[in-house]
């Protein structure tokens, strides 16, 4: 297993907090979908945090990150909404904010980058935050749980913590666009050929499946735009995964999860049946670390992952 994942040109200070490993205390931004239609993601994340021995402190007054759609009307609004979230984190002494959604990760990081690199924008944000007595000082770093797992916990430690190895379950990673692109915003690993999810799957005792669809788009943001298009994007990607022998999919993004889990059935008419069950990243990690399967909300998935888990002797 390679220990170095990181491209040499990655901006070091935007991904690492030297003290975070000791404090093990993180600001937690769950995002809207983990609180609405993917509650099983929220619950599994909290159960995983217990197993990892870290404290996730939810930013309960935080707003939506903008979800790439608020941007479509006005270039400033999402940035200032996120500045408000960062100000709350700072006020709580939590400058290390963890997300569990690829879209939140990308858009919160983009907003932060714009604020930190442009004084005018920071001034604009703070003049609005000032109306209700808040201020962002520019000290927050946003990371996805996936990056925190590898940077702070470490793959070696993760491997040692596994009590229920995945018995070679063939798992196809599906990253979700906004955790890798644009590279200048994320840059934690190569956007062309990321392998953090593969590394985590391998550490859990699964067999990662390499396929061309892993960095492609699930179509979530255009599901309602034109009939069949997003559905077909799901089918295309899942076809590639299935053809490479995948038995399941893992994703760090609840939006991808909604698309992959929800639309494979409808995509079958064009792409053939794939029926790949899709795990949220924290679900599969928490399972391998010993959280009981029935606590992970696997019964909420439209394509039930439990049959393949029985087949692989992971659950009874």
């Amino acid at each position: 297993m390679s220990a170095t994942l990181l491209p040499e040109d990655r901006p070091a200070d935007s991904h690492k907090r030297s003290h975070s490993a000791e404090t093990k205390r993180y600001g937690f931004f769950p995002g809207c979908v983990a609180k609405e239609s993917c509650k099983e993601l929220f619950n599994s994340t909290m159960l995983l945090a217990d197993k990892l021995g870290i404290e996730l402190i939810e930013l309960t007054a935080a707003s939506c990150c903008g979800a790439s759609v608020v941007n479509d009307t006005n270039r400033d609004i999402a940035r200032v909404l996120n500045a408000r979230t960062y100000a709350q984190a700072e006020a709580l002494g939590l400058d290390d904010v963890i997300t569990i959604c690829s879209t939140c990760t990308g858009h919160m990081r983009a907003a932060n980058k714009e604020l930190l690199e442009n004084e005018e924008r920071m001034t604009q944000a703070n003049s609005i935050l000032g109306k209700f007595g808040a201020k962002y000082n520019g000290g927050v770093m946003v990371r996805h749980l996936l990056w925190m797992l590898i940077d702070d916990i470490g793959l070696d430690n993760l491997r040692k913590m596994v009590v229920r190895p995945l018995n070679g379950l063939k798992v196809a990673p599906f990253y979700g666009c906004h955790i890798i692109r644009p590279e200048k915003v994320n840059g934690w690993e190569s956007a062309r050929n990321p392998h953090s999810l593969e590394d985590v799957v391998a550490a859990l005792g699964g067999e990662p499946v390499d396929y061309a669809g892993k960095t492609r788009c699930c179509g979530f943001h255009i599901q309602l735009e034109k009939d069949g298009v997003a559905t077909s994007m799901v089918g295309q990607n899942m076809r590639m995964a299935k053809d490479k022998g995948a038995e399941a999919v893992i994703t760090p993004c609840p939006l991808c999860h909604l698309a992959l889990d929800g639309y494979q059935q409808d995509a079958a008419s064009r792409w053939g049946r794939t029926d790949l069950p899709t795990f949220h990243l924290p679900q599969l990690v928490a399972f391998a670390l010993g959280v009981p399967a029935e606590k992970l909300g696997l019964n909420k998935h439209l394509i039930d992952p439990r049959s393949i888990m029985v087949e692989r002797d992971l659950i009874a």
């Binding site: 609180k35 007054a61 759609v69 009307t73 309602l224």
Partner: peptide, 21 residues
């Protein structure tokens, strides 16, 4: 649908702070 989607997302975020699915 495109403009309607953008506006309704803005509306729900303004009203509730959340994207109300």
């Amino acid at each position: 649908r495109g403009p309607r989607h953008a506006l309704i997302v803005n509306k729900t975020v303004k009203q509730t702070g959340m994207l109300a699915e």
